[in-house]
Simulated assay, not measured.
Amino acid sequence: MTAQPTAFALFAYRQEPGCFIHVLLNGLDLDDKGHPVKIILEGPATTLLSDIDSQEAPLPALFKKASERNLIDGYCLACATKLGARDDAETSGLAPLSDMSGHPSVASYIQKGYTVINF
């Protein structure tokens, strides 16, 4: 009997493009190795959606690749709203996540079997 691969929910909090690049790289690497992955933009990271295409390489290409693989689960609706990034977040086509008082619930990912990692 083969063990199920571990599922990971990667919560990106920081606004720094370099940090988000590492979230995307790790998400893509885990996916390549057969692990279910969801990437969630929280807090200041939601503001990165406003100019993702104008960021320096490799961020736009990695974001596109992760999006095409459906690894990005969505963004925090409350944080995007509070930080003035809601319009850009909506334009991105990503899902607004708000199941915990307007924020994505870590507990809901754990209940679905994901191991949560915060970046």
Score class of each variant (00 low, 15 high):
79 C>S: 15
77 L>C: 07
119 F>T: 05
35 H>N: 14
116 V>M: 04
59 L>D: 05
25 L>N: 12
3 A>Y: 04
45 A>Y: 03
42 E>P: 03
107 A>N: 13
11 F>V: 03
106 V>R: 09
61 A>I: 11
119 F>P: 02
15 Q>I: 12
113 G>A: 01
59 L>E: 08
36 P>I: 02
106 V>L: 09
65 K>H: 12
81 T>G: 05
55 Q>N: 09
34 G>L: 04
118 N>F: 09
75 Y>T: 07
97 L>D: 00
83 L>S: 04
111 Q>W: 08
92 S>N: 05
10 L>R: 07
113 G>I: 03
30 L>M: 14
73 D>N: 11
48 L>P: 06
53 D>S: 08
15 Q>A: 12
68 E>Q: 15
106 V>E: 00
4 Q>M: 08
100 M>N: 13
62 L>C: 06
14 R>D: 09
102 G>F: 08
112 K>C: 02
3 A>L: 06
62 L>Q: 03
17 P>G: 03
1 M>A: 12
72 I>F: 11
89 A>H: 05
66 A>R: 02
36 P>T: 03
114 Y>T: 04
104 P>F: 02
42 E>V: 10
40 I>W: 01
62 L>N: 02
11 F>A: 00
33 K>Y: 06
119 F>G: 07
102 G>H: 04
31 D>P: 04
10 L>K: 11
32 D>I: 05
113 G>C: 01
65 K>E: 13
43 G>H: 11
75 Y>A: 02
80 A>C: 11
45 A>Q: 07
104 P>E: 00
98 S>K: 06
60 P>L: 07
72 I>K: 02
24 L>D: 01
99 D>T: 07
59 L>A: 06
106 V>K: 07
67 S>R: 15
17 P>Y: 10
72 I>H: 05
91 T>W: 07
18 G>I: 12
28 L>E: 01
32 D>L: 11
99 D>N: 15
32 D>Y: 13
38 K>Q: 13
8 F>A: 00
100 M>T: 09
25 L>H: 10
24 L>C: 09
42 E>M: 15
77 L>D: 08
26 N>P: 06
79 C>H: 03
82 K>L: 15
110 I>W: 06
50 S>E: 14
69 R>V: 01
103 H>L: 06
100 M>K: 14
27 G>M: 05
27 G>S: 07
38 K>W: 03
67 S>Y: 14
44 P>F: 10
53 D>E: 12
20 F>S: 03
102 G>Q: 06
22 H>D: 11
36 P>H: 05
61 A>L: 12
30 L>I: 08
97 L>Y: 03
